[in-house]
């Protein structure tokens, strides 16, 4: 009987050691705070905002774009600050030039701005401002401001699919990102864009186009309204000895048109 006792001890020791090999909990359950841009569909996306001074009064010098963020892991126990970091577009041929800190937007190092990038204790989500600056260069080109959520004293960046943002800054009519090749008003042109803004009193920027969505009845309304208005304008221009409305007055092939009703 005596020879069984060591084996009993060995088995007990093994069981004890196995029990001690517990895996650490994931960070989100370990008291760390994360922050990310608010999203509904978990597919990688750059959160986008637009700052278009074109629709603002001439005296307006600054514009604010709010970005919706939310916390992950634990809720802040105290006022907690988020940090954004701007970065340059590294693609081979960027669609737009990079915005310049202090010229097109308030620098991310600005202490006063940094104080606004915060979530209060117990706050799950919030809207954090990016402040853009009206500069003469925006009359000629749209600038892009790429940035990402950076590690701060209070937050780590959350889901990496939702920690990048971009702001398009302009002071001219520019093709909204969702005015794509199959847009219901046809191909884009700045004269056409200006025409529909004047006829409808709407901005026809990306947000407004998003609000129309796939409402085909509303699309039919706008298409009718603009087609009818274009007929009237062209008739008036013809009566005044002018050409029809064109993107380029010297180019007859650039006449403003809309798809058939």
């Amino acid at each position: 009987m005596k020879h069984i006792i060591p084996y009993c001890w060995l088995a007990s020791l093994t069981l004890f050691l196995c029990g001690a090999c517990r895996k650490d909990a994931p960070s989100v359950y370990a008291g760390k705070q994360f922050v990310e841009f608010y999203y509904i569909n978990d597919t990688k996306a750059i959160t986008t905002g637009y700052s278009t001074f074109y629709y603002q009064e001439p005296g307006v010098k600054y514009d604010t774009v709010l970005f919706h963020v939310r916390t992950v892991g634990t809720l802040p126990q105290k006022t907690s600050y988020v940090k954004f970091k701007a970065f340059a577009d590294t693609t081979a041929s960027p669609a737009f030039p990079d915005a310049v800190a202090g010229v097109h937007y308030v620098s991310f190092e600005d202490a006063q701005l940094n104080l606004l990038w915060k979530l209060e204790a117990g706050q799950y989500e919030g809207y954090l401002p990016i402040v853009t600056i009206r500069d003469a260069s925006l009359k000629n080109a749209t600038y892009q401001l790429h940035f990402r959520i950076d590690t701060s004293a209070d937050f780590y960046p959350g889901n990496s699919d939702h920690t990048e943002g971009i702001v398009y800054i302009s002071d001219k009519l520019s093709q909204p990102s969702n005015w794509t090749y199959n847009f219901f008003l046809g191909t884009y042109g700045p004269v056409k864009h200006q025409f529909i803004v004047e006829q409808s009193g709407e901005k026809w920027d990306a947000d407004f186009i998003t609000s129309i969505g796939t409402n085909t009845s509303l699309q039919a309304y706008y298409l009718f309204k603009f087609s009818q208005a274009l007929n009237v304008v062209n008739a008036q221009r013809k009566a005044a000895g002018q050409t029809e409305l064109r993107e380029n007055p010297a180019d007859p092939t650039s006449a403003v048109t809309f798809p058939p009703l």
């Binding site: 085909t216 009845s217 039919a220 309304y221 009718f224 309204k225 009818q228 009237v232």
Partner: peptide, 13 residues
């Protein structure tokens, strides 16, 4: 109005 739509369009000028 397209009878399969939901509203009348503006008047024909």
């Amino acid at each position: 109005m397209n009878p399969a739509s939901n509203s009348f369009l503006p008047e024909r000028l």
